[in-house]
């Protein structure tokens, strides 16, 4: 057990590598109730979020979700989050470690908008992920909930009573995330385990998301890093609206910036955050997240390098240089190795 932003969370329930494979090959369940759920209501919600977030909520219809960064005045990422567009309002799921910063910033930016920002700490959240996840879960549910699990499209969600079921996740596999009352979560957790779904700890959550090329806030980006530098350019919607951080992003686009790429270690050893990366031309970069990839059987990493880095680079591991290949993440999606060498 570790203290994770005030929550006691298990690194692993048994073998971390077996938990990882369970999600890639079958199904696993994560208790992600530490995530912060915030509802945004009121007549000004749309205008407020169009200014607050780098992506544009107008791009989606009700029943759809959008991944985005919430930026500061310098274009740095205060947090990354998913926004769900409901019939009457919006729901945001933000990180636990940044909860207070996020809520303070959201309150501060709400001036002049008719919005109500309402945290939902009474909701638990379970992520059920893996190629068999939806099939197994649908069997345990009935009615509209079973139907939602079976038929939701990617990044779509449905609400039924106190439950919100979304076809989203942080593993690179198919699956859903469910926000539901605490008592229901306990019951569902027990049913899932009885149905052969493996409980998954924070350790495998990290190796799965890294293989999937998904960022971890605080490692791969923070409030000094812009979306351009964190492979999040696709989450920025530059249109005719103003949003916080827009001008610095435009400036950086013009002036150039570092890039986030993937690395695969050629030899043995394990890439870790903060190791130095040395390019053939003498320039340097840094690993932002590194681990051993159970799927590839090699060490992989996300790294921030000067723009245009390709081919082989050296990584300094305990004062020795080791060769790594620069790749375009993700490394693994839907059980398949998918990275491309750069």
């Amino acid at each position: 057990m570790v203290d994770f932003g005030g929550w006691d969370m298990p690194i692993n329930y048994g073998s971390q590598i077996e938990e990882h494979h369970a999600v890639r090959q079958n199904a696993g369940v994560f208790d992600v109730s530490h995530m912060t759920v915030v509802d945004i209501a009121g007549a000004g919600a749309r205008d407020y979020l169009r200014q607050l977030l780098a992506n544009d909520v107008d791009r989606i219809d009700p029943g759809r979700a959008l991944y985005t960064g919430m930026l500061n005045d310098n274009g740095g990422v205060i947090d990354d989050l998913i926004v769900y567009k409901q019939d009457n309002g919006y729901r945001l799921v933000v990180n636990c470690a940044t909860r207070e910063t996020d809520l303070d910033w959201m309150e501060k930016q709400a001036g002049g908008f008719a919005v109500d920002i309402h945290e939902r700490p009474e909701l638990a959240m379970l992520a059920i992920q893996g190629p068999k996840a939806r099939e197994i879960l649908a069997e345990l549910l009935s009615g509209a909930r079973a139907e939602a699990v079976s038929s939701l499209k990617i990044f779509a969600f449905a609400q039924d009573g106190d439950w919100m079921i979304a076809r989203t996740g942080y593993t690179g596999e198919d699956g859903v995330e469910i926000m539901l009352p605490n008592a229901d979560a306990v019951t569902l957790w027990g049913q899932l385990l009885a149905a052969g779904v493996a409980p998954i700890g924070l350790g495998a959550r990290d190796t799965l998301r890294l293989e999937a090329g998904l960022n971890l806030y605080g490692n791969d980006m923070d409030n000094t890093i812009t979306p351009w530098e964190a492979n999040m350019g696709w989450t920025v919607m530059l249109n005719d609206r103003e949003f916080i951080g827009r001008q610095p992003l435009l400036n950086q686009q013009k002036n150039g910036h570092g890039e986030q790429v993937g690395l695969i270690l050629e030899g043995k050893g394990v890439l870790r955050a903060h190791q130095k990366v040395l390019l053939a031309n003498g320039e340097e970069g840094e690993i932002t997240s590194g681990t051993f990839s159970p799927t590839l059987g090699k060490s992989i990493a996300l790294a921030r390098l000067p723009a245009g880095a390709t081919g082989k680079v050296d990584v300094e591991i305990r004062n020795k240089r080791q060769v790594a290949q620069v790749v375009k993440p993700p490394f693994v999606r839907n059980g398949e190795v998918v990275y491309k060498e750069l």
Binding site: I11, N12, S15, Q16, I17, G203, G269, V270, F292, S299
Partner: peptide, 8 residues
């Protein structure tokens, strides 16, 4: 330590 993946 958990699952070991490398020994130097």
């Amino acid at each position: 330590m958990g699952d070991l993946v490398y020994v130097e």
